[in-house]
């Protein structure tokens, strides 16, 4: 490790940009979170009110609901992404001509904007007209009454699907990398000892993959907990408030109800939660 002052020259421009465009605005928001500022009343903040905005948050059923929705959404997405990811990794571990071609396709969903993903899934889920709806109604006739995005559970599920459609394959690639790093001889030893494929998988493969699965899970948690785009394009938070994530709730408070003081306090709360999560994440990556 070198230690000359050249490092400060290297870091200066980045730090300058981050301070002006991220740190200062965050302090501004932190400052606003202690003030009353309803834009409908006046264009300037209306004075300090201490922790009132924070206290209000924890008495606000909509806030608690959005906290719950965010939690449910995030865990659902992480869960399905990992199932899909492990399935993909285990399948592609066996190399074949087609496996290599399939591997090359896996990055595609991730490159597609969330906005487009949201609209596309909404389009494919249209009741009686969308292609996914048509196919599912064919295979599961008893579900043909369900209007996917008008049902609280399914709306959340499909919003999650639009996300694990990308994170599943990406997680699969990451888990595959870890899988290929495992020493082959372990599997051969298990085979010699007469372990079935399933037992090898649950008792050897999965435990060895655990660290990478945790990393994937945390990455997904961090990305999906700030979800906004999919809510706006797929459900608008509905039915009712069933898919209103914290970030979308903040958007509604700030830009529909125009209560910027309260929105700022909500943002600070979400940030504290996320900083805690990224702390966990960096502990895993750096140690």
């Amino acid at each position: 490790m070198r230690n000359s002052n050249f490092k400060y020259v290297l870091l200066l421009p980045t730090m300058l940009i981050l301070v002006v465009t991220t740190i200062l605005p965050i302090f501004q928001v932190a400052n606003l979170s202690f003030q009353r500022w309803q834009i409908t009343r006046s264009l300037t903040p209306q004075g300090y009110i201490g922790f009132d905005n924070y206290i209000r948050a924890f008495q606000d059923a909509d806030f608690l609901n959005s906290l719950w929705v965010t939690f449910a959404y995030t865990s659902m997405t992480a869960f399905f992404s990992i199932i899909v990811g492990v399935f993909i990794a285990v399948t592609l571990q066996r190399s074949s001509f087609w496996a290599n071609i399939v591997k090359a396709l896996l990055i595609f969903p991730f490159a597609i904007s969330l906005t487009l993903r949201g609209y596309s899934y909404r389009f494919m889920l249209l009741d009686g007209q969308g292609i996914i709806d048509t196919i599912l109604d064919f295979f599961f006739p008893f579900m043909s009454d369900v209007i996917w995005l008008a049902n609280p559970f399914w709306a959340l599920f499909w919003m999650s699907a639009a996300l694990f459609w990308a994170w599943g394959p990406l997680g699969g690639l990451m888990i595959l990398g870890a899988l290929n790093n495992i020493d082959r001889s372990i599997f051969e030893a298990a085979k010699v000892d007469g372990a079935t494929n399933w037992r090898t998988f649950t008792n050897i493969t999965l435990p060895l993959l655990r660290p990478m699965i945790m990393v994937v899970a945390l990455l997904i948690t961090l990305f999906s907990s700030r979800m906004f785009d999919l809510v706006l394009t797929m459900t608008g938070g509905g039915p009712g408030r069933a898919t209103e994530t914290l970030n979308y709730f903040i958007y509604r408070v700030g830009f529909k109800i125009f209560d910027m003081g309260y929105a700022s306090a909500l943002a600070m709360i979400l940030t504290i939660i996320l900083i805690f999560l990224s702390y966990l994440y960096s502990r895993m990556l750096l140690d």
């Binding site: 981050l18 991220t22 740190i23 200062l24 605005p25 965050i26 501004q28 928001v29 961090l222 907990s225 700030r226 906004f228 914290l246 970030n247 903040i250 958007y251 700030g254 830009f255 910027m260 929105a263 700022s264 909500l266 943002a267 979400l270 940030t271 996320l274 900083i275 999560l277 990224s278 702390y279 994440y281 960096s282 750096l286």
Partner: peptide
Amino acid sequence: LVGILASQFFPPVVLVLP
């Protein structure tokens, strides 16, 4: 390093005003 990453998880909606 953590701070650089953590800055990414501030809810973007509220930064619109600043």
